[in-house]
Write a protein that binds this DNA or RNA. Structure first.
Length: 461
DNA sequence: ATAGGGTTAG
């Protein structure tokens, strides 16, 4: 009796120690403890294995966790609902969605009844699979069955509906739940705000943000970055920067993601000085630079015209054993074009092609524009004609640059083709064609073009 | 278990 009790107590202690090692991502230590325990006669139990499985799911892989499940069975311990919940959540987190479904089936086959957590995780999995009907079916099962929904159930529903484009349904559900007395959590608000922002329903987003303020919850870093990003996306840069300063004054700090967002927005709006300050802050905060952060910084240097500094960062990337991606090369190509080093840009484009980055539409657009800018009109047009894929950037640039070169008729012809195909051309480029025709005496042609532009606009609305 | 998230061209 005493032995048994002390054994159980020891297992409890063992589990606590293992949990703390797992939390610290020190899985070898946790494994070591299990071995030590067995030597001392302290046997691991279901909690021990569940802790380990959850940690392997988080820090290693679902496969690794599954091996622990095998060991668990060999030790004669049966998995329970928590074991499977961890595995299912792990698979969902790692985007192994069909595996989540398999694990759920396996759990049912083993005669382990799923709980609300299992259903929540599975709902989330279906939403990620882009199958909102399936998720909704599970939601109904929960509501009509013996299980009771948790706050997470509602959050997953609202978030999943938004992510799948059912923002209206998410709003309706939100209001219904409120009417039933559900008190939204900060996660609920953030999900909705993000969904509304992405759906460009900024008025409603603002409304929910206001409700959040009145709810007793406080906006957190996620709320701020969501709204800030929304502003940048809709090109309300000033408003975005206001939110940024409010965020800073509240003491929220950035990680690499946040810094990149902010620096890119500052660069886009020409605030190079401030961007540089943020860059310094990011580096001095000890944030480990990854390829995206490098791209952001290289872009900053390019926009400053500091090509040597940009090349130095390229070397650094190599030294650190990271791989440049399509963004890195495109940013460099654009930088070289803007520095009027068109030869260097073309060389880099060729290099990019040999590296196997295909369909570099952006890079080609940059070089076409660059060729125009250095006055190589024919080369630019040759390249333009050789491009298999073109987009509104390509055409806008070509139309505008043709005008700069005085080829208004050609520009006009191209513009009409674009209008007919529904390709969007920047107003400034359209303006350039009209003004060019008129100023060079082709008033009638300018008039005709103007009316064509109007008609095309009518068709679009 | 559930919320956000970074980089390029006209």
């Amino acid at each position: 009796m005493v032995r048994c009790l002390s054994g159980r107590l020891s297992t409890k202690l063992l589990n606590i120690s293992i949990a703390s090692f797992c939390k610290a991502e020190r899985l070898e230590k946790a494994e070591g403890l299990i071995i030590d325990g067995i030597r001392l006669g302290i046997l691991p139990d279901v909690v021990t294995y569940n802790t380990l499985i959850d940690a392997y799911c988080h820090f290693v892989s679902v496969d690794a966790a599954y091996f622990v499940l095998d060991r668990m069975r060999e030790a004669g311990i049966s998995p329970n609902v928590i074991t499977y919940n961890s595995l299912i959540a792990g698979a969902t987190r790692k985007c192994q969605l069909s595996r989540s479904l398999d694990l759920f089936d396996e759990m049912l086959r083993m005669g382990i009844p799923p709980d609300t957590w299992s259903y929540n995780t599975l709902m989330n999995c279906f939403f990620r699979l882009g199958k909102p009907e399936e998720a909704n079916r599970l939601f109904r099962d929960i509501l009509l069955g013996d299980l009771s929904p948790s706050a997470a159930t509602f959050n997953i529903m609202i978030n999943g509906l938004c992510k799948n484009g059912y923002t209206n349904n998410a709003m309706t559900l939100f209001r219904k739940l409120q009417a039933y007395g559900f008190v939204p959590q900060i996660i609920t608000y953030n999900s909705l705000i993000n969904g509304l922002c992405k759906a460009r329903r900024l008025k409603e987003a603002r409304c929910i943000l206001k409700e959040l303020g009145e709810s007793g919850h406080f906006p957190n870093a996620i709320t701020y970055t969501t709204v800030m990003k929304c502003c940048f996306r809709s090109r309300n840069f000033d408003q975005g920067f206001e939110i940024l300063s409010e965020m800073k004054s509240k003491g929220f700090t950035f990680d690499g993601f946040g810094y990149c967002t902010v620096i890119a927005a500052l660069v886009k709006t020409g605030r190079i000085q401030v961007a540089t300050e943020y860059m310094k802050e990011m580096v001095s905060n000890g944030i480990q630079l990854d390829i995206v952060s490098y791209n952001t910084l290289i872009n900053l240097y390019c926009k400053e015209g500091k090509l040597e500094a940009a090349f130095r960062l390229l070397d650094e990337i190599e030294k650190r054993g990271l791989d440049c991606d399509a963004y890195t090369h495109t940013i460099m190509i654009d930088g070289l074009c803007k520095a009027r080093n068109i030869k260097g840009a073309q060389q880099h484009l060729a290099y990019m092609n040999t590296m196997g980055f295909d369909s570099n539409l952006v890079a080609y657009n940059c070089v076409v524009d660059g060729l125009f800018k250095v006055g190589q009109i024919d080369n630019a047009m040759n390249m333009f004609e050789s491009m298999e894929i073109k987009d509104s950037f390509t055409y806008t640039s070509v139309v505008y640059n043709l005008c700069k070169a005085g080829r208004f008729h050609f520009a006009s012809k191209l513009l009409i083709i674009c209008l007919r195909s529904g390709m969007k051309i920047l107003k400034s480029a359209q303006r350039a064609v009209l003004d060019g025709l008129r100023d060079s005496g082709y008033t009638a042609e300018a008039k005709k073009l103007r009316s064509k532009i109007r008609k095309a606009r009518l068709l679009r609305h």
